Amino acid sequence: MLSIMGVTMKAYRRSLFFCIVALAVALAVVAIPSARGATASEVLVDKSFHITLLRTVDGTLAFPNATGTTGESATPIGVYKVTQKQVDPNWHWEGKVHAPYLRDKTNGLGIRWIGISLPSYGLHGTNEPFSIGKDVSHGCVRHQNTDVTEAFSMIATGTPVRIIETPISQQTEGMVTDFLELYDLLTVMGGSR
């Protein structure tokens, strides 16, 4: 096997790949300051990396997310449009109506709802902040309430929403999940980005 300074090419490529992935995730989570407050021209949800990107003319803003599990609860891949936005939504679930999150902490939508052109699917906040970075929802895309509040003001009705899945190895997925769990912990504890 070919070796460069005692390191095999296979090990070198693996290390390089992990460095590139780590850099991409770090850059995605660190927002470009000029993009804050701009209007999003596109929303890109990457299910594999659990990242929602808001593309603007001034740059890209990124937020960690949680997506659907498997089977019928999988977040559907495709291109959609934002059809509705709601502040402090009621949540209709299994025959029960939950009051807005600030009055009813069991409201799974959190404090914002951004509906897309696939009925009953959307981007929203959460009442389970430690679920971010995982495949746990019933198909919607969850965000920290602070993140979805910021994104809400930047996303207009009609904005395209593209949901993709990037194939990654299980080891890389584990690293990304660990990183996002740390991000969520710092967010919940009051850390700032």
Score class of each variant (00 low, 15 high):
Asp178Lys: 12
Ala11Phe: 02
Val97Gly: 06
Val141Pro: 02
Gly158Val: 10
Asp104Pro: 09
Thr172Gln: 14
Asp147Gln: 08
Leu102Val: 11
Ile111Phe: 01
Ala24Arg: 13
Thr149Trp: 04
Glu94Asn: 13
Gly108Ile: 03
Thr69Trp: 05
Val30Phe: 10
Ala38Asn: 10
Gly190Asn: 09
Ser117Arg: 07
Ser192Ile: 02
Glu150Leu: 15
Gly108Leu: 09
Phe179Pro: 00
Pro64Ala: 09
His92Phe: 07
His124Glu: 08
Arg14Ile: 08
Arg193Thr: 03
Gly122Ser: 08
His143Thr: 00
Tyr80Pro: 07
Asn65Asp: 14
Lys47Leu: 04
Ile132Glu: 08
Val29Arg: 02
Leu27Gly: 14
Gly191Thr: 06
Thr177Arg: 12
Thr146Leu: 07
Ala24Phe: 10
Tyr183Lys: 12
Ser131Val: 05
Ile132Asp: 04
Pro119Gln: 14
Val79Asn: 11
Gln84Glu: 15
Phe130His: 13
Leu123Thr: 06
Lys47Met: 06
Met189Ser: 15
Ile20Thr: 13
Gly95Asn: 08
Arg193Tyr: 08
Gly78Phe: 10
Gly78Trp: 12
Gly133Thr: 01
Tyr183Val: 14
Ile116Ala: 05
Val30Asn: 06
Ile116Gln: 03
Trp113Phe: 08
Gly108Asn: 12
Thr146Tyr: 00
Pro89Arg: 03
Ala35Gly: 12
Gln84Ser: 14
Val82Ser: 11
Ser117Glu: 09
Glu42Met: 12
Arg142Met: 06
Ile51Arg: 02
Ala40Arg: 07
Ala62Lys: 00
Ser137Pro: 07
Leu16Tyr: 15
Val176Asp: 05
Asp147Met: 03
Leu16Lys: 15
Ile32Arg: 11
Met189Val: 02
Val141Met: 08
Ala35Pro: 02
Gly78Glu: 13
Glu128Ser: 10
Ser192Asn: 10
Phe179Ile: 02
Lys81Gly: 10
Leu186Pro: 00
Ile77Gln: 13
Trp93Gly: 00
Glu94Cys: 01
Ala31Gly: 14
Glu173Val: 00
Val43Trp: 06
Ser34Asn: 05
Gly110Glu: 05
Leu123Gln: 07
Tyr121Val: 04
Cys19Leu: 13
Ser48Tyr: 05
Arg193Pro: 02
Phe49Gln: 01
Asn65Leu: 00
Pro160Val: 04
Gly110Cys: 06
Asn65Met: 03
Ile20Val: 12
Thr149Leu: 11
Ala40Gly: 02
Lys47Asn: 07
Val25His: 01
Gly110Met: 05
Ala38Lys: 15
Met9Ser: 04
Glu165Asn: 13
Gln86Phe: 01
Ile164Gln: 08
Ser120Arg: 13
Trp113Val: 04
Thr159Arg: 07
Gly191Pro: 06
